[in-house]
Design a protein around this nucleic acid. Sequence first.
DNA 1: TATTGTTATACTCTATAACTATA
DNA 2: TATAGTTATAGAGTATAACAATA
Lengths: 158, 158
Amino acid sequence: MSADFDLETRASADDHQALRLWLRLLSCTTRVEDQIRQRLRQEFGTTLPRFDLLAQLERHPDGLTMRELSERLMVTGGNVTGITDQLEAEGLVLRETRPEDRRSFIVRLTPAGRRQFKRMAATHEGWIVELFAGWTPAQKTQVHELLAQLKMHLKDNT
Amino acid sequence: MSADFDLETRASADDHQALRLWLRLLSCTTRVEDQIRQRLRQEFGTTLPRFDLLAQLERHPDGLTMRELSERLMVTGGNVTGITDQLEAEGLVLRETRPEDRRSFIVRLTPAGRRQFKRMAATHEGWIVELFAGWTPAQKTQVHELLAQLKMHLKDNT
DNA sequence: TATTGTTATACTCTATAACTATA
DNA sequence: TATAGTTATAGAGTATAACAATA
């Protein structure tokens, strides 16, 4: 696969502003995301959805139900079951039964899972810092604020 | 699936600037991309990779070989074969043999394919304009330029 | 030998829907 | 009845590798 072509080459010279912006945005985001996926696989033998599930549990030390994970990760229940099965088999998370509602359980990080996630998260953050080093801190702040504005618009219009 | 959570909630309060920026960028891009995929499926019964292949052919009226399509779409050859098979079955593209190299052929838009792509592209551009209406023209220009800078950095560092 | 394209296969990620157990 | 979670299945989208035809 050549590095000389990418999504942005979809645009032709007379395309309009919003379209050109979108193709460039998609091109940059895809490039970063592909890097992250590739590095997570190479360095840690894991995937983005698995990393994301662990990240949610890290932020909720008391654990989350499958239903809550499904909402937060924005994927359907069957998928959460699959990812959780894998992580549980690796000893990174556990399902805890709840006497008060025997239909559900709480998923938590194990101590090993927490250690492993912290290791991955630190490395991951380093990759992001490196990939976004093309922008000054002031530029990062500027884009962050512009994206907040776009995000509000998207929430209202999708 | 709830709209109250998304990828950006991965960040915790003390996460650093680049990481927060990245999660917000990913969140916005994913949201737009999901909308586009969904609308392409609903309105035109097609997918993003198929749309992208047609877009490449539109920009190259003399056609492209499978190899060139593979490079430009940044996917491996087997995938291009599959997408091209579908589009050819729908009468939107055709494979033209080349006497000068009988191993390969040129893929071109048919007249119907060109008409259909133009229709889809116009609608697609309207969606993009709508989804990015949260930014003023000046802000779009600003982000476009900032992304150019980031893209250069990414080219050097990936 | 190298290249073009196809075929076969597999894996990740996702969705839908039928199902079980419990509330 | 409604909800929590699982299972089964399907379909994008992608990659790798073996292969046939041609250069």
